[in-house]
Amino acid sequence: MIELKGICKTFKTAKRNAGFKEAAKALFKKEYSCIKALDHVSFSVSDGEMVGYIGPNGAGKSSTIKIMSGILVPDAGECVINGRIPWKDRINHVKEIGVVFGQRSQLWWDVPVVDSFELLKDIYKVSDQEFHKNKDVLTELLDLGEILRTPARLLSLGQRMRCEIAASLLHSPKILFLDEPTIGLDAVSKVAIRGFIKEMNKEKGTTVILTTHDMQDIEALTERILLIGKGRILLDGSLSELKKRNETYKKLTVDYAGKGVEPIPGLTIVNSVEGHAQMTVDTRILSVSSAISHISGQVDVTDLSVSGATAEEMVVALYKEFSI
């Protein structure tokens, strides 16, 4: 059970301007500016839930993760995870969580992965029995096999990420924080990792909080989305709810011969290159059929397709809606 109530956090950063004069000036005086990273963030996640935590860069995602993992103390607000306040009881808290920072490695670079695992076993004081059980299960599910005997520096990004995830689960944490776990991976690895996370969540009931920029991750994994922007939670709901909200939008892709389409109320032209255009229709103003008849009245349509918005577009629309 994760509960955040009214979490606030402000950072102070030094300004640094370009140019010779400014550099000389900075020798004597520094200017600071305050950034509100988190502004009354509240949400709760029940055991076994899988939540996608999304938002643009600098929205406050990693600050939230840091607070939930006990690294950062908020200025105000409450955070209780499994009955503990993370930063007050760090050591006991982190025993029950696993964290994967997608862009940083927790494996020891020059030694075989399995050696890293052995060391983690000692760090987390995992019993032999549990360690071997977990290692075997993870090896099988993540298809680690031979990889375990390779030094981490020789692994491909996809192989490494699989090992990173396994490393975070050796101590059977109740909660798993995944910070951009699929960043930079190829399609096959992404699918493998998504499959595994889903499995973990279903079989072991691990609570998963996932930050990502990849909407396919969200679509494949999570039912619930938390959207954060400028330090505030903008939306807390299910993916289908979000979809419903966006049902008022339809996307038209048109191939045509002729001069081009004039927009009318409800019909926006997203882009058009000679003979190929993408448009959106706001169905509250204009029905899809009247939009099509408007288009075919203006140009000679050779091909036309209608589709709903993808998750990514929905998020972009949300960003726009909240102007972040």
């Binding site: 840091k66 993992s69 006990g70 690294i71 760090r90 050591i91 006991n92 982190v94 025993k95 969580i97 964290v99 920072f101 940083r104 927790q106 760090i123 987390y124 004081k125």
Partner: peptide, 13 residues
């Protein structure tokens, strides 16, 4: 390089 964050999420001194 963020290694200290990693240290902080491990249950040891």
């Amino acid at each position: 390089n963020g290694e200290f964050d990693r240290i902080m999420v491990r249950p040891r001194n």
